[in-house]
C-alpha cells in the first residue's frame, strides 16, 4: 500500500505503524457522569466496518506524524489522508 502523506507525498506503508481506529481521537471526558462506561466503549468497542474506515497511521520511519487515513477495508483503497493533529483540533480536542 502507498499512503499519500499530506506533507511528504506518496510513501510506502512499510514506513508506518498502524495505530487503530481513528475513534481513538475521541477520548472521553474523565469527569463525565458516565465516564467509566464511556471509557469502556472507547477502549473496547469498534465499528469495524467492511468498507471505508477512518484509522490512524504513525509515520514512525518518517516525520513522526500521526495521520488519519480513510481506507476501504475490502479493497485497501485509500480515499483521504489528513494530519491527525488537524483532525483532532477540528474535533475540538483541547485539554
Amino acid at each position: 500500500m502507498i499512503i499519500n502523506h499530506p506533507i511528504l507525498g506518496p510513501r510506502d506503508s512499510a514506513e508506518f505503524t498502524y495505530m487503530g481506529d481513528a475513534a481513538l481521537l475521541d477520548r472521553p471526558d474523565w469527569q463525565a457522569k458516565d465516564a467509566l462506561a464511556q471509557f469502556i466503549d472507547y477502549g473496547y468497542l469498534r465499528d469495524n466496518p467492511a468498507g471505508p474506515h477512518q484509522e490512524l497511521w504513525y509515520h514512525e520511519q518518517g516525520d513522526r506524524s500521526f495521520l488519519v487515513v480513510t481506507r476501504d477495508t475490502t479493497t485497501h483503497e485509500i480515499s483521504s489522508v489528513k494530519l491527525a493533529n488537524d483532525v483532532a483540533r477540528s474535533r475540538g480536542r483541547s485539554t
Binding site: I7, L8, D63, R64, S65, N85
Partner: peptide, 17 residues
C-alpha cells in the same frame, strides 16, 4: 521546506511539522 536541506556552513533540514 519539507523534504529539503538548506544552508552552507550551518545547514538545516526538515524532520517533521
Amino acid at each position: 521546506k519539507p523534504g529539503h536541506i538548506a544552508g552552507d556552513k550551518v545547514t538545516a533540514f526538515w524532520i517533521g511539522p
